[in-house]
Design a protein around this nucleic acid. Structure first.
Lengths: 211, 211
DNA sequence: GAGTAAATACATATTTTTATGTATGTCCCA
DNA sequence: TGGGACATACATAAAAATATGTATTTACTC
């Protein structure tokens, strides 16, 4: 275990690559290679044989989400440490489901990064405090939206916001037209509104749907 | 002019600071100091006396926009080179009005950055090719949104998005109900859609209205 | 085990929206 | 000066949405 951790970096910003390299190089970590997008990275993995891959989310050609998915499928032994450019609440949830090993804010300093890389290399998970807060916010937001509307109502809200009409919603959900009528009327009553446009605005403001 | 360019860095990502420093240090450039937010940066300027300030847009406490504004007012001699984390189309316009000296994508490599810093230090403006494209897109988007809809149609769109119905819109605009019908039908035909919900989503996405 | 909430289903009446026409006066530009 | 785009106006029919009822089954809670 005295060996260096073999670290691979994937980021489309040369600056970031330089920054991370100069922060972590030496100190028990060896930068075995860098890539500037997902597909480039995937090709290099079998050659570089990294222990840990540190990857950005937003990248051209193949983004970090897709890269993480494929890495998990093809090379499950490489630990995945995702670098967040913050604000990526939505993608965070997806990534957690894919099963990454850690999440790290780009605002982290050298010590934190070092700690994170070494942790995931040893098989531990690593989530910074910012991230823990984000995860909490996700579940809070979920609970909040869950308490107002039933799952069925949320289904109808989402389809309504896509411009589907009653008939189409009924088809998609495999329920009757008249049931959709009832559900939608219930939603209107709950919110004290009386048309779909106001519902759409409400849903967007409260992040029930994503544009 | 054989002197080093005195460069100051402002970014809340330690990574970025390290990256830029290791890319540009030496090579005719001296990093005289770094700050991680706008107010910190403002305090340091009189002490560090930089020729060029390279600044990020998104930062806590005081963001790059506000920093640029104050720098222009307090220290007009310091050249401002803004680092874009791309996608900041809206802020770009504001910054151009403030009168910055250059705009640089974070995806730039060492040579481009070096070129940019030296250019603005000499009093030239610097805008990368990405940025030139962005500026074009700004004016295109503006023209597009201006030319698609007539003023009357825009009125109707805005009221529709507030959840008003035909009758109410007619009242507000002081025109007949049937005229509103015609206008709205014209809007639908133009966009190839057939209900108000899709219109709302379109309007929000294209910033025809504000939530 | 009773009470409550949710999801489902159906009915009816009214209002609103949408699709498609036609038509007229104005204003601008080629 | 003639064509085109726009704002306006009106008409009709069909489709969809909304308001208000009732009612049944399931599932969870106290």
């Amino acid at each position: 275990m005295g060996d260096n951790v073999r670290l691979m970096l994937v980021d489309d910003h040369p600056l970031m690559l330089m920054g991370i390299a100069s922060m972590l190089s030496g100190k028990g970590i060896e930068i075995v290679g860098t890539a500037s997008n997902g597909s480039e990275a995937l090709e290099m993995v079998p050659v570089l044989k990294p222990d840990v891959m540190m990857l950005d989310i937003v990248m051209p050609v193949m983004d970090g989400i897709e890269l993480a998915r494929r890495m998990r499928a093809l090379y499950p032994d490489v630990a995945l440490l995702v670098l967040s450019s913050d604000s990526s609440l939505a993608s965070l949830e997806v990534l957690l489901n894919i099963g990454i090993d850690g999440f790290l804010s780009k605002t982290s300093d050298a010590l934190v990064m070092l700690d994170a890389v070494k942790s995931v290399a040893l098989g531990y998970e690593y989530y910074g405090t910012d991230i823990a807060r984000l995860i909490e916010r996700i579940s809070l937001a979920k609970k909040a939206s869950e308490s107002i509307f039933t799952p069925r109502e949320l289904d109808v809200i989402r389809f309504s916001c896509m411009g589907l009409q009653y008939k189409e919603i009924a088809e998609r959900l495999g329920i009757r037209y008249l049931t959709v009528v009832t559900i939608k009327n219930n939603i209107f009553r709950k919110l004290g509104i009386n048309n779909t446009v106001e519902l759409v605005v409400y849903a967007i403001k409260n992040e029930l749907i994503t544009l």
